[in-house]
């Protein structure tokens, strides 16, 4: 009789990455990188306080959500109160990092289908999150709405840092709309993946929108000195 195939659902790839990045000792390089990122954002706050941080990139799957969540953890580890908001209403991912259903989110609240009290989820990790909720054919409309502005204004009173995950710039207009109400933008670039021309074009778009670009975070850098195939570098 042949060997039985194991009945097992493969673990979500990004969940494994999340756990790895968060706390396993071998990943101290990654933890350090996020701590450096935090420090550098702090340095950029000398003139004006950076409280609401937007995460974007030029293309999809460059590690935006992973950076958003791990930066949040980095702040949490230093005793700050952090809220992560998934404003990628087209391809939300933040909920997957916490193995929670994407319900009672921004879109549901905007359409009157959930109460404001249900928006903020207190995860067991100590980070509070707001998910995107049900998909909408009008994401830009929601991102420009007074509702979002009001929510963020309230959140600013309650949290030390608010991290907004937004779509990539080269794909949709959403991140540009969001950049108008944040204190700073972190631009994520996956090493050896995205063409320089697209990165330049995306940064130019942010510049034209007068966004405060804090710097670039480069993901998936191959490091010949460690066995891991990703690191995070922060570059101004």
């Amino acid at each position: 009789m042949g060997k039985a195939k194991k009945l097992k659902v493969k673990k979500r790839k990004n969940k494994l990455e999340f756990v790895k990045l968060r706390g396993i000792v071998e990943d101290t390089h990654v933890q350090e990188a996020f701590e450096k990122l935090q420090v550098n954002i702090g340095l950029a706050s000398v003139d004006e306080k950076i409280k609401v941080i937007q995460i974007t990139s030029s293309a999809q799957d460059e590690g935006k959500s992973t950076v958003a969540v791990n930066l949040a953890f980095s702040y949490l580890n230093r005793g700050f109160k952090v809220l992560v908001v998934d404003l990628d209403l087209r391809r939300p991912k933040i909920h997957r990092n916490f193995e929670l259903p994407n319900e009672n989110g921004i879109v549901d609240f905007a359409s009157g289908k959930c109460a404001k009290e249900s928006l903020i989820k207190h995860t067991k990790y100590g980070i509070d999150v707001v998910f995107s909720g049900k998909k909408t054919p009008y994401p830009a409309k929601i991102l420009e709405s007074e509702m979002i502005h009001n929510l963020l204004a309230e959140a600013k009173e309650a949290y030390d840092f608010i991290i907004l995950d937004t779509p990539p710039i080269s794909v949709v207009v959403d991140p540009i709309l969001v950049s108008k109400y944040v204190d700073g933008v972190l631009f994520i670039v996956q090493a050896d993946k995205t063409k320089k021309s697209i990165i330049k074009e995306s940064l130019k778009t942010l510049e034209n929108a007068q966004a405060n670009v804090l710097g670039l975070v480069i993901t998936s850098v191959k490091d010949k000195y460690t066995k891991y195939n990703y690191k995070y570098y922060y570059a101004e």
Binding site: G2, K3, A4, K5, L7
Partner: peptide, 11 residues
């Protein structure tokens, strides 16, 4: 055989 047994019975 291994695949056949797995997906018709063992799983």
């Amino acid at each position: 055989e291994e695949t056949a047994r797995a997906i018709f019975e063992n799983n």
